[in-house]
Design a protein around this nucleic acid. Structure first.
Length: 565
RNA sequence: GGCCCGUUCGUCUAGCGGUUAGGACGCCAGAUUUUCAUUCUGGUAGCAGGGGUUCGAUUCCCCUACGGGCUACCA
């Protein structure tokens, strides 16, 4: 059994917590210049130069969990929760576990669990324990832990912290509707429970009869009356709730499964979770969870809480939802997802061409910062700098533009050969077979204009196929009456270039232009138009070299014929 | 409706009683470029409002407004 000491020495007051299972020692007093260590089997302490005895705090090994419900694809907010848990665990040398919370059989979506695991892997957030990863605290799927929850519900009934409730869903619905008609809200709580059908109001004979009869019932938490529950949230600071405002939550459902609240508390305890890091939507249930730990006798070892701010829509009201992505053209899911029911497809960051490192980086900066101007972080840097007290309290609007900017950065970091490898399959798809050396050179020339690998095609297609049409605006502005004539002359110049390399072509071309005293712009834009189809693209002579002498001349000839003023 | 949380440029944020309120994305302008893009330089724009506390409030307290979350035998 865990135990603890409270010691007050030299102005410091430390709570020493330890269990025989997980102990590690960490000196928390950085300022002390002490060099002398005196070991002790349970408590570590040292004496500083001021002859004060300092006790070091001993803590349980950090263990955190990401506990999604497999009701659909993982939302990017969920990935961020997983990320912060992961970073916290790594930062403190602890464990990161994945627990699947599937206590609601009605909402189970096939494939969701696999999707969650694949998403975490793609992001590099690999759990130390959990569904799909094994570990000593399994099983990690709550549906497989069904048998262990009932005893804790019974324990709560036995010690007076819970009770049986026989009210049917229909009866409760009716009460809610009636209250609504009177502009009120029905709540199953300390104010109403004595007027309802439960083990607090029914005789023990009646209760036994109903249970023996197999009547459906739930087990509800008996919320204490009018007491303040105060907890220091690691992100938000002190938060107080009064139990008079809280309802008697169902802990155990009539189908024999626990609700989230019971299962969550029981599992966090059994799995020795030290820190619960989750979304702000759970803040309201924190007092219930704390009261549950207390009622189960686990208060001394219960985890600390940290509630993350939510990710909000880019515009408008509310938190980010699946629809926003469809409407505004960005993914809200890490991976592509096909709804098994409707067949509806939702785009994913991976399939949209985001690099996982960019995705992680942008997620990390949504609600957290290192306290300086650094914007780019590798996973290792995130682990090094991460701290819960630098997590922002307010919700963060997601900005798809900045997301792209992050990806651009990571794309620019990659070398041309690296990107060429990723580009090759796209070229293949387009039916283009090009030598790898050429693709590498092309990528090197156009990559700085790209945010995504997929942009490479749009920026470089003219290296592989001749333009089909010519930009009208450019024609109007730059294609003069004598342009054809001049291009004919240029063709002759190009023909005379023996060593077809960008530098040589440019040299011959420039010499010719100077000799004729033609303005560069007057000729170069039309050539570009002929080679590219519009007035954009890489350096003209690089294009010439890479598409080859014959192709260059052929394209110019084709343009002369096609474009008549 | 009730409870809880929040509020600094359009957006993400720094700030933890005295600052010319800093950075980033976006946007705009200039430079570079034979074009487009990149790049570089510069610019634009903010403490929700009202009361306190204080010599002094973006910063601390209260109220209001606004935003968010929860209010299921869902998580």
């Amino acid at each position: 059994m865990p135990y603890y000491f409270v010691l007050g020495i030299s102005g410091y007051r430390f709570r020493i917590i330890t269990s025989f299972r997980n102990i590690f020692f960490e000196c928390r007093i950085k300022a002390c210049p002490c060099k002398i260590w005196i070991s002790h089997p349970v408590v570590n302490y040292y004496i500083c130069s001021g002859n004060h005895i300092h006790f070091t705090e001993m803590e349980k090994k950090v263990r955190v969990r990401f506990a999604p419900s497999p009701t659909g694809p993982l939302h990017m907010g969920g990935v961020r929760t997983a990320l912060f848990n992961y970073l916290f665990a790594r930062k403190h040398g602890g464990d990161f576990l994945l627990r699947i919370e599937d206590t609601d059989q009605n909402r189970y979506v096939p494939g969701a669990e696999e999707y969650i695991i694949e998403s975490l892997k793609w992001c590099g957030l690999v759990p130390d324990e959990g569904v799909g990863f094994g570990g000593p605290f399994g099983p990690y799927r709550q549906s497989e832990r069904k048998a262990i929850y009932r005893q804790y519900a019974d324990q709560l009934i036995a010690n007076g912290n819970a009770y049986y409730a026989f009210d049917s869903a229909e009866e409760l619905d009716r009460l809610r509707r009636e209250a609504e008609e009177k502009q009120q809200v029905f709540s199953y709580d300390q104010h109403t429970r004595l007027g309802l059908k439960n083990s607090l109001t029914l005789s023990s004979e009646e209760i036994n009869r109903r249970i023996a009869n197999g009547d459906p019932y739930v087990i509800r938490f008996k919320m204490p009356e009018n007491t303040d529950v105060t907890e220091t949230d690691l992100i938000r600071g002190s938060v107080t709730f009064n139990t008079a405002q809280l309802d008697d939550k169902v802990l155990f459902k009539s189908d024999g499964m626990p609700t989230y609240h019971l299962a969550n508390v029981v599992d966090d305890h059994l799995m020795q979770i030290t820190h619960v890091i989750r979304g702000e939507e759970w803040l309201s249930s924190m007092p219930l969870h704390i009261l549950l730990y207390q009622a189960l006798g686990w208060d001394e070892t219960r985890p600390r809480f940290a509630h993350l701010p939510l990710i909000l829509k880019p515009t408008g009201k509310g938190k980010l939802s699946k629809r926003d992505g469809d409407k505004m053209g960005f993914p809200v899911f890490p991976l592509l997802w096909t709804d098994p029911e409707t067949g509806e497809v939702s785009r994913g960051y991976r399939e949209d061409g985001y690099f996982p490192e960019a995705f992680i980086n942008l997620l990390a900066l949504l609600g957290w910062n290192a306290g300086n101007d650094q914007e780019f972080f590798s996973m290792d840097e995130l682990i090094e700098h991460f701290s819960l007290d630098r997590v922002v309290k307010s919700g963060a609007r997601f900005d798809p533009e900045k997301a792209k900017w992050f990806n651009r950065h990571y794309l620019q970091q990659k070398t041309a050969p690296e990107l060429a490898v990723l580009f090759l399959p796209i070229l293949n798809e387009k039916g283009i077979l090009a030598p790898v050396e050429k693709v590498v050179r092309v990528v090197g020339l156009v990559k700085d204009r790209c945010e995504f690998v997929a942009d490479l095609w749009g920026q470089s297609n003219y290296f592989f196929t001749a333009p089909e049409s010519y930009d009208e605006t450019t024609i109007r502005k730059k294609w003069k009456d004598d342009t054809s004539e001049k291009l004919q002359a240029i063709i002759e110049v190009f023909k005379s270039v023996s060593d077809w390399q960008a530098a040589n072509i440019k040299e011959r071309f420039s010499a010719f232009m100077n000799e004729k005293e033609w303005g560069f712009g007057v000729v170069m834009v039309p050539i570009r138009l002929a080679l590219v189809g519009n007035s954009s693209g890489a350096d003209l002579f690089d294009i010439c070299e890479l598409i080859g002498k014959d192709e260059t001349i052929a394209r110019i000839r084709k343009a002369i014929v096609a474009i008549r003023v």
